[in-house]
Amino acid sequence: MSALVAAAHVIAMAAPYGCAALGGVWSERSGVVNIALEGMLIVSAFVSIAVHVATGSPWLGLFAGVAAGGLVGLAHALLVERALVHDLLSGIGLNLFALGITRVGLRALYGSSSNSPNVAGFGWAIDPTVILAIVSVIVTMWALRGTVFGLRVRACGESPNAARSCGVNVVRTRIFAVSLGGAIVGIGGVALAFDLRQFQSGMTAWRGFDALALVVVSGWRPGRAAALAVVFALLQWVQIGAQGKLGVFGFFVQTLPYVATLLGLAAARPGRISGAPKGLGVRAPS
């Protein structure tokens, strides 16, 4: 029984990483580099808590959080595809904006620079956000592989010119894919906030960037990215459980995912099967 509880706990910890990685997969498979995952996570976490506090309904909080993540995704997509801002600059700007605006909101709504009041959350044995996260893994795997939309998204990511020549509206497809990805990241943000039952300033703590690393190591594949997120969460759980008593070993556990990412990056060299979309960062033909 306790093993089951622990497993559920690890899955809950993996949800933010997994959802952010899925959002990254959607965005990057469509050809838009996305380092704004961190910003999407924190905005959706904040909005979900704010709406939950205001209305008392966790469901409304969940919807609002997901919508907020989608909106940040939309902003990123519009900046990159319509305003032709470099995707890394847009990502950095949106991250700083998101971090700042949530802190402003925290001050304005709750007069605090550290955390929001506590919320009740769903109170279910398994949080609906976690269920939603698992569902979105399955849906993403299926949609990217087996639907017309998924094929179009992948075509835009591999070669925007070829996609365009087949009559695909590259800009519109990318905007939709990145926004959808943002909404999925939003699920992760809500899961993170509801897990802690409150919003804390800077609570995402680089999870969005870790998720980006997961995307790369997974070879831009949603299923593997989700599985890696669980491994990542498991390592963290071990570390937290040991409470810093692991010494050097704990240090290795902490850095293991990152070293693995570096090795994965080195292995994914061009010419080999890397999985990186070939049109990543290539703007749509005008």
Binding site: L88, Y258, L262, L265, A266
Partner: peptide
């Protein structure tokens, strides 16, 4: 990593930032 393997520097530097964090935390603690 970039010159030898063509690894994208944005991802590798982000990851190295996290490793640097871990190193700093660990060496300060020990």
């Amino acid at each position: 990593l970039k010159a030898r393997f063509g690894a994208h520097e944005v991802v590798s530097t982000i990851v190295l930032n996290r490793i640097a964090d871990a190193i700093i935390g660990f060496s300060l603690a020990s």
